[in-house]
Amino acid sequence: MAHRRKSIGIQRIAAYATIAAALVVTLFPVYWIAANSFKYDIDIFSIPPQWIPANPTSKHYHAAFVERPFLIYALNSLIIAVSTTLVSVVFGSLAGYALARFQYPGRWRYQISFWILSTRMMPPIVTIIPLYIAFNHLGMLNTKPAVIIAYTAFNLPFATWMMKSYFQDLPVELEEAAMVDGDTRWGAFLHVALPLARPGLAATAIFCLIISWNEFLLALILTLTERSQTLPIGIAGRVTQYNTYWGEISAAGFTACIPIMIFAFVVQKHLVRGISFGAVKG
């Protein structure tokens, strides 16, 4: 085991060299999309590539967000992500608390927990066809509520498990003390458990935001017009067989990455718990 041994100079150097290489490999693509979003078309196409934009321009941002409806896509993404997150976190906290604290007859608690987790494992492509047909019947295709409902189905299991695990970490005596002090169980949940689970709530919410913000397949199928299309769909729409609008999609793509990069630093402490419940991938 390397990390149990006494520090050796060479190993240290190798480690730092690896970290440096990993950082370059990790950051270069992100840098590259950012750099290209600020280049004139002619500089994007230059051979050899222009490593640093010589004539920075915001032209593509203007093109995407003013001339083309990327601002609407971004707003749609935001509305859908926030609504999905609200519903998922509220329902997920309630169910997570119930599964963390209450007794159910027989092995029902285990069964229900496992069933909720297993719905998360369904490949989206499997449920999307019936959802498409149902929303078509209800006249809800191309609406934001349809996307929000579909996203909730995929976020709720995760939110429930994540909140369940945070509630289980809280000592149960605190809620019992509140009940003896004069609260109902529900009051103890609202006044004691929920405030104490705030870090967990925040982390769960941010993961839900990220999943919904990034999602592609469901939105691709459920939305056909800009009234409800999200940023990823808008970007994909500018990658056609005949022409790819590099500047525009770089600008939109990099914009889509910005909130994620901010959130990543907020949830870093909760990352392991989040991804082991399968949070990060939509």
Binding site: P29, I210, F216, I235, G253, A256, M261, L271, V280, K281
Partner: peptide, 13 residues
Amino acid sequence: TILMLPMMLPPVA
């Protein structure tokens, strides 16, 4: 956190 970034970015991007 920087090394973790790629997996959180939108797959489309």
